[in-house]
Design a protein around this nucleic acid. Structure first.
Length: 479
RNA sequence: GCUCCCUUCGUCUAGAGGCCUAGGACAUAGCCCUCUCAAGGCUGUAACACGGGUUCGAAUCCCGUAGGGAGCGCCA
């Protein structure tokens, strides 16, 4: 019944845990809390536990559990233990409650919901803090016809100080804390109690969680002390606000982290963004996973809430795309291509496209969008680009380009570049006068990677075929 | 209402009494580079919430004020 940790205080290895309740999605706020827990455990060579807080059977769903697990997996936040489920530990909670009842640190309360509601209403009317006044604290006899709840007997005097790792010491008067319910009238244990028992049983040394739990902490510490256990270290990290500084909403980030996968973000980029929200390491902005682990310290986390900035996330995502080995991006690009109804298993082409496009796209989705013409011959011609560049002059240049390119011995970017430049010089035109019609002809748009690179990647056959198609059409329209 | 928390450029942050004429990054403006679009380089605009103290000296320490947030459930 003791916290394992207190048996071996000298073997104080760090144990953290992420404990989401499966009543909603894993959004960026939760993901950041999970990240901090994970990072701190990794940094300290400790253990990271995943625990699902599903005591509220009404609101918990299996779907939510799945989404949370998938989100954690996508982010690469691997747990050393778990997932544990609180619903599988009800026997244990029941045993502890029985013990506390016997020891007198908990008691039965026979007040009905109606009575409690009325009490609360009165207190609010009197502009008092709504709280349980301890009506049943000294009651010894049961009240017929009422199934009791169990309340924790909180100390009424003194002060409880939370030595918070991010906030510093925070003092609470015990008199401000009322006797919270630890078991409902149907016997099921409540959240604040389960957390305490789980953290104790699992040997959690560092509770890293959202700011919103700071007020719960003194009660949890008091329960731990009533159980003769030493409270863990606490770190309450601030919440994430929407870009407008208001509470995070669906519009801007209160969506599943898996949404970011769909939109073409790299997990490491999202993690990088999240870790820099409320934490910094000198002037460094871009971190690999390893660098984050090496540099992270929970003590350096800021106290203030911070606003989510999608633009910076975008920038970071590009930084990560540019810095990671191109081949590593292949599966990601292919996943996005499939969403567009194409695909390719030509690794050389894929890698070439990634290198050519990574500086021109903020996300992999955008990269795929901009790269369709590399993978599908069914290209859409942008009417504006056609109107602007497929002029009589443009078509004339195109015909000449076609001839020169067809004569090329070697189909590679440098040779193509030389040929185009030579032609431009001969015709006394800027390279743009030639490159743009070619670009429109082979890509359908006025925007693409450098024309030599684009043609080289496309390959001789496909490039010439596309030029021919446009020339045929162009000739037709002039007759 | 009560308790607790928070407050540096638009945003993320650096800053632990003199190094601050407040630094970096995103965004933004201009210039350079340039076959398009980007990327990149350079330059610029832009902040210590307010008021009192303490001190030779305060973004940094103390006290108030204002504004924001959280908690106060048989929710988690």
């Amino acid at each position: 019944m003791r916290a394992p940790r207190s048996d071996a205080p000298d073997l104080m290895t760090v144990v953290t845990r992420f404990a989401p309740s499966p009543t909603g999605l894993l959004h960026v706020g939760g993901a950041r809390t999970a990240l901090f827990c994970w990072l701190y455990a990794r940094r300290m060579g400790g253990k990271f536990i995943l625990r699902v807080e599903d005591t509220d059977r009404e609101r918990s769903t299996e779907e939510a559990v799945r989404v949370i697990l998938e989100g954690m997996a996508w982010l690469g936040l691997d747990a050393d233990e778990g997932p544990y489920y609180q619903t599988e530990r009800f026997d244990r909670y029941g045993a502890v409650i029985a013990e506390m009842l016997k020891a007198g640190s908990a008691y039965h309360c026979y007040c009905t919901r109606e009575e409690l509601d009325a009490l609360r209403a009165q207190q609010i009317a009197r502009k008092e803090k709504p709280r349980y006044t301890g009506i049943c604290r000294e009651r010894t006899a049961p009240r017929p016809g009422v199934a009791p709840v169990v309340r924790f007997r909180n100390p009424q005097a003194g002060t409880t100080v939370v030595e918070d790792l991010v906030h510093g010491p925070v003092a609470f008067q015990n008199a401000e804390l009322d006797d919270l319910i630890i078991a409902r009238s149907d016997g099921t244990p409540t959240y604040n109690f389960c957390v305490v028992i789980d953290d104790m049983d699992m040997g959690v040394t560092h509770v890293i969680r959202g700011d919103d739990h700071l007020n719960n902490t003194p009660r949890q510490m008091n329960m731990l002390r009533a159980l003769d256990a030493t409270p863990p270290a606490y770190a309450h990290v601030p919440m994430i606000l929407g870009p407008d500084g208001a509470k995070l909403s669906k519009r801007h980030g209160a969506v599943s982290v898996l949404q970011y996968e769909e939109e073409g973000y790299l997990p490491d980029a999202l993690l990088n963004y999240l870790v820099r929200l409320g934490w910094s390491h000198g002037d460094q902005e871009v971190f690999t996973r390893e660098e984050m682990i090496a540099a992270f310290d929970i003590h350096d986390v800021n106290k203030a809430a911070s606003a989510f900035n999608p633009e910076k996330l975008l920038w970071l995502n590009q930084q990560h795309m540019v810095r990671s080995p191109p081949r590593a991006l292949i599966p990601h690009l292919r996943a996005q291509l499939r969403r567009l109804g194409t695909d390719s298993d030509d690794e050389q082409l894929l890698e070439g496209v990634i290198v050519a496009q990574r500086e021109r796209a903020k996300t992999l989705k955008e990269m795929a969008d901009n790269s369709r013409f590399f993978f599908s011959d069914d290209i859409r011609m942008d009417p504006k680009a056609v109107a602007k560049h497929m002029t009589a002059d443009g078509l004339a240049a195109l015909a000449e380009v076609r001839a020169r390119l067809a004569a090329l011995k070697e189909w590679k970017a440098s040779a193509i570049n030389d040929a185009l430049n030579a032609l431009a010089a001969e015709l006394q035109l800027g390279l743009g006068k030639i490159a743009q019609p070619v670009r429109v002809a082979v890509t359908g748009t006025a925007v693409s990677p450098p024309i030599d690179v684009t043609l080289a990647l496309l390959g001789r056959e496909r490039a010439l075929a596309r030029l021919d198609a446009v020339l045929a059409r162009g000739a037709g329209s002039h007759t």
